[in-house]
Amino acid sequence: MMAVNLGKLKLKNPVMVASGTFGYAEEFSGFMDLRKLGAVITKTITLKPRPGNPMPRTCETPAGMLNSIGLENPGIEDFLKKKSDYLKKLKVPIIVSIASEDSPDEFITLAKRLDKEYFVSAIELNISCPNIKKAGSKRKSEKLIAQDPKATYDLVKKVRKATKKTLITKLSPNVTDITKIAMAAENAGSDTLSLINTLGAMSIDILNKKPKLAAITGGLSGPAIRPVALRMVWEAYRKVKIPLIGLGGIIDTESAIEFFLAGASAVAVGTGNFINPKTSLEIIEGIKKYLSANKIRDIRKITGALNI
């Protein structure tokens, strides 16, 4: 009653943990039974190692937080050498999140490399991280791939040719019309969409008049963005046929169910993992209770079941 399919990817339940909020899973092993998760989405991996952004990298905001970690990661080769052993032993679908730094072609190289790895169930294209800047530039990239329908289409199309793995495209909320980007990714062959990544945001310390993040701006996450995320899932659901993964401020069963009703086929817990490491497992149990209390046999019945 809890199983869902995202393209070829079969999940025993529809609750995942979002990229960047769960490390490489091992960090959470002491707090929960990881095998119960629907899937794990790793911290984003780039071709070369990235040291990440200067401190401070996070700050608390009303009902949420800002981050500008800057995709700190060991690079694909060290990830496969040092971080993947644990993931291979986990009996849970592993989704590897990837991003490019200088050229979108890095996505293709990364996808080809991961295509050979049996433990990788799917690849998530992080074309929407607000915290990276182009090499040699002091400013952040002027435009994210996920802010341009044509760039999104071209990239997904190329990666599609490079791998047979299930492809998930992660969309940015920092756009005028998310449905255009969603349709571009669908037309280019993405199996699924994740929405949403963080909202561009900032916070200021009024005593020293400094931004609270060293990078000045960062990405807002947590319950503060949930209504925005929900609206975008709802808009995308009416325009595309591929399944959607809803995320943005999910911290309990009620917030997860909202996303299903708006059109999500699966959900991911992000910042909620920081507050309560077991959030995702509690949501799995909570969804089961919701379904049985409402005499719904299959989780798939509530996707897009909004009463209007």
Binding site: G20, T21, F22, G23, E27, F28, F31, K43, G52, M55, P56, R57, T58, C59, E60, M65, N67, I69, E72, T271, N273, F274, P277
Partner: peptide, 16 residues
């Protein structure tokens, strides 16, 4: 001392 988000090594928000 550092401000922390997760406290368990996952978010990489409190680095030195």
């Amino acid at each position: 001392e550092e401000h922390m988000a997760c406290g368990i090594g996952a978010c990489l928000g409190c680095v030195v």
